[in-house]
Nucleic acid binder design. Structure first.
Lengths: 74, 74
DNA sequence: CAAGAAACATAACATATGTTATATCAGGTG
DNA sequence: CACCTGATATAACATATGTTATGTTTCTTG
């Protein structure tokens, strides 16, 4: 075994679950590739600054629209 | 010699010249590192999708404020 | 049950980026 | 001239990302 699941991993999974998006859907929304989302969720990598901003902005937008009930993150 | 100067190289240089920003200044505005801007201008790399979006958005904003007179790009 | 499709996990390779260090160059100042 | 400083160029190394391919699981459908 390797690559522990970070907090961010859990956050991405939970956000994606609440928004009911596939990894590919979320990737498209953020402007990154499917592999990037998959790596985040499986603790292989942590997001770049720009990618993290994209993610945070999406969460903010979704929260403002009542589509996301977010306990963790940012 | 190596790494030809692409169109994008010239665009970045010109935008930076018009905005009177150092490579480090522009890097900070875009949320990337100095090295990234330097590589763009010297044709070593081409921007990622997210980075390119940041750049285009800055140009758009500056143009809307009359601070940028842009012949090339996007 | 068999076959297919969708979502996810994983790997390999190329490329972009961040970080750090060093070097060059132009301008100013003593 | 010698010295400094800011801006730029370049390199090396680690990490993040894109692309592509393959395997697995789950669900549906025949």
């Amino acid at each position: 075994m390797s690559s522990k699941s970070s907090e961010f991993s859990k956050i991405v999974k939970e956000v994606r679950r609440q928004l009911n998006l596939s990894q590919e859907d979320l990737a498209h929304q953020l402007g990154v590739s499917f592999a990037t989302i998959n790596r985040w969720e499986n603790g292989k990598t942590t997001p770049s600054k720009l990618a993290r901003n994209q993610f945070d902005n999406l969460c903010k937008k979704m929260r403002s629209q009542g589509r996301l009930n977010f306990s963790g993150g940012q």
